[in-house]
Design a protein around this nucleic acid. Structure first.
Lengths: 252, 252
DNA sequence: AGCAAAATGATCGAGATAGTACATTTGGCC
DNA sequence: GGCCAAATGTACTATCTCGATCATTTTGCT
């Protein structure tokens, strides 16, 4: 099986064998990079659909323009392929996030956009969400081994930290905000909205995933996050010095 | 392999072979119910740990006081066992929830307790959470087939609906609150907190899962939910009639 | 052109795994 | 006690699945 030169630079990964790509056919040649990318994109889809144990190397191979031989040649074994696929999925998603530049916006506006963006972005990348779900099932053992992924996420936090700091300085956000905790809140809503859609729909119907209801949920999410970040409208009676959280009666 | 009479009524599922149970040994006998329960509890643990494809029937069998033969005898095949295990996991968790009686409390207090309870309860039942995660990976195909589970969840919503209605009537909650949407918000935080702990910890460290930080997150969650339910302190400029949500600028 | 290393093709094997066949024991009932 | 159906034990197999082996082609380089 052969590849067009620079096939890897094509964006339409899912095309059929023999489809035009818009790239000139200037002879055919070995193309290791394209082979790897081809394998990875198929692997992401397959692992995301069926999980680590559920995915079949043979199935991945057959959906590839290359052979199983190549999978083992480049990735060693199934777990190696999985790990690289996980990294690739992260990379692709973080790329999308990198385009978001919020530095010129006022902090509240920046945070609003960040939350809304994350919500939408997760929704547009279900395979990524599923990869993370699967990784959680496996106790993040493979992710823990990937320095690449940790670095990328720390970068994401930096962005949020910057917003928090600016907000504090301008006096619109409360002091001592923990960017990681805020990220947790943002992720919880955005992630759950995709990850648990199947069971939620099965039980309560698809209503919450229609356009109107999703719009509503997204807005609620944005507002909740902003409320957490904002200086409390009502002065808290006690402030927990350790975590910067308002301490109020929360039952039990 | 033989069973004590009424062994199924014992609460300590995880005990070793031959351990005392507090139940008098009054002879040994066939005990189909105990066998089924034994298999199910092992199955939940195994499926929760390794997923549907990752779980091994032989492993389940070996951790059971009975044999693989019995698994197929009572549950037909692996998928049958999985489905029953899923139901059993739901049942166990909903049982815990049923004990919660909130009808005598004022709506805000009831909602506060419900949220806090859900947060804690999910945390105490990671196997259940993992089963749901796995079911989501499989697009809820098996859950969809289980009427039992749908019924139980509808019951849970009823509880929330009652609180919402009372809150509306007493004028402390906004009108047109959607109990399912509220349930979504509660679940998102409570579920994510358990489901994504491994990846989150791997990336950002375990800090957020220490007692102090968890306390803080739980409180933030409670407050966010209450804020959503409460009548807005600031009158909304526009109200979306379809969903009952405030419409404000939420960015793109 | 010729050579060595990288890349790829075709086929096969070992072990794991779900599920089964057959035999045996137990327990309620007469 | 004897009988039959439910329950359980033992051993086996067909198949699926990962991974390896051996052979061949392509390519960069001199």
């Amino acid at each position: 099986m052969y590849y067009l030169d620079h096939f890897a630079s094509g964006t339409d990964i899912g095309m059929e064998n023999g489809m035009k790509t818009g790239i000139e056919r200037r002879g055919w040649t070995q193309n290791p990079e394209a082979v790897k990318q081809d394998i990875l994109s198929v692997a992401i889809s397959e692992f995301a659909s069926n999980g680590l144990s559920g995915a079949r190397v043979d199935t991945i191979a057959s959906r590839t323009r290359t052979s199983k031989r190549m999978i083992y040649y480049y990735f060693g074994d199934k777990l190696g392929l999985y790990t690289r696929a996980l990294e690739a999925a992260y990379l692709k998603v973080r790329e999308g996030e990198a385009a978001l530049n919020l530095d010129h916006l006022p902090p509240e506006e920046a945070l609003t956009r960040l939350v809304a963006f994350t919500f939408d972005h997760h929704k547009k990348n279900p395979d990524f969400i599923r990869m993370v779900m699967i990784e959680n099932i496996h106790n993040a053992e493979n992710l823990a081994a990937s320095q690449v992924i940790r670095d990328m996420n720390m970068a994401a936090i930096e962005k949020l930290a910057t917003i928090c700091r600016r907000g504090e300085e301008e006096g619109v956000f409360r002091k001592g905000l923990d960017p990681v905790a805020l990220h947790w809140q943002i992720s919880a809503a955005s992630f759950f909205n995709v990850s648990n859609r199947p069971t939620f729909s099965a039980i309560f119907g698809a209503g919450l995933f229609g356009d109107d209801a999703q719009e509503c949920i997204r807005r609620q999410t944005v507002e909740s996050i902003l409320a957490i970040a904002a200086k409390s409208r009502v002065e808290p009676k006690i402030t927990d010095r350790r975590s910067g959280c308002d301490v109020a009666d929360a039952g039990d």
